[in-house]
Amino acid sequence: MKTEATAVSANGRLDAIANAGRRAFVFLERTGRAGLFLLRVLQSIPAVLARPGLIVQQVFSVGVLTIVIVLVAGAFVGLVLGLQGYNVLVRFNSEASLGTFVGLTLVRELGPVVTALLFAGRAGSALTAELGLMKATEQFAGLEMMAVDPYKRVLAPRMLAGFISMPLLAAIFSAVGVLAGYFIGVGLLGVDAGAYWAQMQSAVDFDEDLMTGFWKSLAFGFAATWVALFEGYDAEPTAEGVGRATTRSVVSASLLVLGLNFVLTAFLLETDT
């Protein structure tokens, strides 16, 4: 009786290990497919450059349609930064440094990261759903049967559009945030306008801060678009499959952006010193 029980629990443990192994294998396999997918998309990009019309169309659906949410979010984040920063700084009598606080936070960290999260939620999910639906309705197979390469006509233009749109969206986010911080700090809380800009300018360095933010947003745009495209193209061609892929796309893209942000921050800070 006892030996039987231990045999069962040992079996259960083995099952758990086998299960974990299978999951790890599936994960590796997916990652590998995602890598090959990216390679093929990148290879197709030169062919797209000859068709700027396709890119413009995608910049519209990826970038322009995301701009409203970025404007609103940027304004609110800027307002909160202004308010919160002022409340902390005023205790040390250094509310004149509000500009430094708002500018550095937005340009280096919050601008690229929050924009990338919004981008994954708005544009990324839309991309995944669109591609998943195209797959479910056999549009990719249809294109292939018309001797049209979906990588060149469908995927590569979207990849480029994400790559182009993200830095611009992040810049708009930061700019709106800085203005919103100005509105709160200078307009409502009485920080000196000259001090706000002067402190910001003396603290935010063009190469080290602004370009850091720019490179980050470029990397995030690349990563978020890649995940969105892959999840859509790899989706199970059913209604539930597309739904699942969309959720997974937003979750994976957001986590990837946050993880990448940590790595990039560490890397870019290291190269500074």
Binding site: G103, V107, A171, S174, A175, V178, W197, M200, Q201, S202, V204, D205, F206, D209, L210
Partner: peptide, 8 residues
């Protein structure tokens, strides 16, 4: 704007 007004 970020380059001219916010950074140095």
């Amino acid at each position: 704007m970020l380059a001219m007004k916010v950074s140095n």
